[in-house]
């Protein structure tokens, strides 16, 4: 068992212990100081990739992910760092290219501010009353007469009068209230409770959409919906390549615009912009100015032809200013 036996009385023992601890403290400070200074070892590209999030996966960093997007991002990081750009510049480039979601620590602006405010507030809310209580008790100690020893009466007064003050009175009042509370109003409470219970069940029953209402836009009595559901669930699990395959199969069975757009959307995620642009073009050939078609065409063009992409996205914005993606697209268009 670890136990340092310190001689209780000798000053020498205390001194030796102090010296020993001081030496250890010095060693520890040296260790921390040495460890904190930048070492220069380690791969800076890997370090940068490790703190970026792969936009196509869930919970994986760019350094760890096997998705094509992450590979492209790693490539971009190494080439740009090799060209002499600073990590901040590379980060800015990647944010412009893939959106702010790649950062795992958002900048402390607007919503990001909350990330820092909430912890500070929580810590403050916990600590402030403690500090206040300490201050009050110190003031109380000072105001108590200094000469008189804290006798029994005094203590009892402090404890009985103050120690049990808020909580105690509250509880006493509570138990008194409880005696009045329960029996007389019992039947009313029961009535209210029973109605509330039934209302809860009814609310769940009513809030459930009926079995006939289709959950998605595409439903017809054939195997296609099942495949679409499968593809959608794959998409949610981040298996974009598999989902794309399923959508391609569905497209053979039923060449509908919504399937084309879903497929095109996934292809953009996978970095296959050319095919996505082709699909979006097909959709727009049927229905010119279909907002989703414009959106996907615009996104697909961003790599090959940025001016055309901006034009398409602007068209999208005039067509569908209230689209869920409109705010994001507006930001993209404004940023260049």
């Amino acid at each position: 068992m670890i136990r340092v036996r310190v001689p209780k009385t000798t000053a020498l023992g205390v001194g030796l212990t102090g010296v020993g601890l001081a030496i250890l403290l010095l060693g520890a400070v040296l260790g921390i100081w040495r460890s904190a200074s930048p070492t220069g070892d380690g791969d800076p590209a890997h370090r940068l990739a490790a703190e970026l999030r792969c936009p196509a996966c869930q919970g994986e960093s760019v350094a760890d992910s096997r998705s094509p997007i992450a590979a492209a991002m790693r490539e971009a990081i190494s080439t740009r760092l090799g060209r002499g750009e600073s990590p901040d510049e590379v980060r800015t480039y990647l944010v412009q290219r893939y959106g702010v979601e790649v950062l795992t620590m958002p900048p402390a602006r607007r919503w990001g501010l909350l990330l820092w405010a909430v912890p500070v507030l929580a810590l403050g809310a916990g600590l402030l009353p403690v500090l206040r209580a300490g201050y009050r008790s110190r003031r109380a100690a000072r105001s108590a007469s200094p000469g008189r020893p804290a006798g029994r009466d005094d203590r009892a007064g402090v404890r009985g009068g103050a120690a049990g003050d808020v909580a105690g009175q509250g509880r006493r009042a509570g138990s008194r209230r409880h005696r009045v509370f329960a029996p007389p109003s019992g039947s009313r409470v029961w009535n209210v409770g029973a109605v509330a219970v039934l209302a809860l069940v009814g609310a769940v029953a009513l809030a459930t959409p009926g079995p006939q209402t289709p959950p998605g836009p595409a439903t017809s009595p054939d195997p296609v919906p099942a495949q679409l559901a499968l593809a959608r669930s794959m998409e949610q699990q981040g298996q974009y390549e598999a989902a794309a395959e399923v959508y391609r199969t569905v497209l053979v069975e039923r060449p509908a615009d919504d399937v084309r757009l879903r497929l095109a959307f996934i292809l953009i995620r996978l970095g296959q912009a050319t095919e996505a642009a082709r699909l979006a073009g097909e959709v727009l050939a049927h229905t010119p100015d279909a907002p989703d078609g414009l959106l996907i065409l615009g996104l697909a063009q961003r790599e090959s032809d940025p001016p055309a992409a901006t034009a398409t996205l602007r068209r999208f914005l005039t067509r569908a200013p209230d689209h869920p993606a409109a705010a994001e697209v507006r930001r993209l268009v404004d940023s260049g």
């Binding site: 979601e101 795992t104 912890p119």
Partner: peptide, 15 residues
């Protein structure tokens, strides 16, 4: 607000 943000290891490791 429709803005996409992501919070990940970099934030939690620092807080």
């Amino acid at each position: 607000s429709g803005t996409g943000t992501a919070v990940g290891p970099a934030y939690f490791n620092r807080t």
